[in-house]
Amino acid sequence: MLDKILYNTVLSQTLSPCGKYLIAGNIYSQLAVYDLDRILNPVVELLTSDYNKPKYIHTLESGSQICSLASTEKFLIVGTVNEISGWDWKNAVSSKLSKPSWVIRIPSRSSMEQTDVNSLWLSEDESKLYAGCGDNNVYVFDLEDGRLVSTFKGHNNFIHAIDGRQQQLITASEDGCVMLWDTRTSSNHNKLEPHNNSKVSRPEIGKWVGSVALGEDWIVCGGGPRLALWHLRSLDAVTVFDIPDHGIHVSFFHDDSVFAGGAAKHFYQLSYSGEVKVELPVSATTVYSAVLRTNPKVLAIAGSSPEIDLCTTFNYRDQVLHFR
Rank of each mutant, 00 (worst) to 15 (best):
I5A: 15
I5P: 09
L6V: 14
Y7I: 04
Q13T: 12
L15K: 03
P17D: 01
C18N: 13
G19H: 14
I23W: 08
G25R: 03
Y28S: 11
S29A: 14
Q30K: 10
L31S: 06
A32Y: 04
V33G: 05
L40F: 07
L40Y: 01
E45Y: 03
E45A: 08
L47M: 12
S49Y: 13
S49A: 15
Y51A: 06
Y51Q: 07
K55T: 11
Y56C: 07
I57C: 03
T59I: 11
T59Y: 07
L60N: 04
L60E: 00
K74G: 04
W87I: 06
A92R: 03
L97D: 02
I104K: 00
I104Q: 00
S108I: 01
S108H: 00
R109I: 04
S110Q: 00
S110A: 00
S110Y: 01
S111M: 02
Q114V: 04
W121D: 08
L122R: 15
E124I: 03
D125Q: 09
D125E: 13
K128E: 14
C133V: 05
G134W: 05
G134L: 09
V138M: 13
Y139T: 13
F141N: 14
E144R: 15
G146T: 11
G146A: 10
R147Y: 14
L148A: 11
V149M: 11
T151P: 14
G154F: 10
H155F: 14
I159L: 15
I162F: 01
I162E: 02
G164N: 04
Q168R: 10
I170F: 07
I170K: 04
A172P: 02
D182I: 00
R184F: 01
S186G: 00
N190T: 02
L192G: 01
P194I: 04
K199F: 03
V200R: 00
R202C: 02
E204W: 07
I205Y: 02
K207T: 03
W208F: 13
V209I: 10
S211A: 15
S211R: 08
A213H: 12
G222T: 14
G223I: 09
P225R: 05
L229P: 02
H231V: 01
L232I: 07
L232P: 01
A237L: 02
H246Q: 13
H249Q: 08
D255H: 11
S257E: 05
S257V: 07
S257A: 12
A260D: 05
G261C: 13
G262F: 07
A263W: 11
K265W: 11
F267C: 13
Y268V: 09
S271A: 14
G274M: 05
V276H: 05
K277C: 11
E279V: 04
P281H: 09
P281Q: 06
A284G: 00
A284N: 02
T286V: 04
V287M: 05
Y288F: 15
Y288N: 10
S289F: 06
A290C: 13
A290G: 12
A290P: 07
V291A: 04
T294D: 15
N295P: 09
K297F: 15
A300H: 10
I301W: 09
G303M: 06
S305H: 02
I308Q: 10
D309E: 15
L310H: 08
C311H: 05
T313P: 06
T313E: 11
V320Y: 06
V320N: 13
R324F: 11
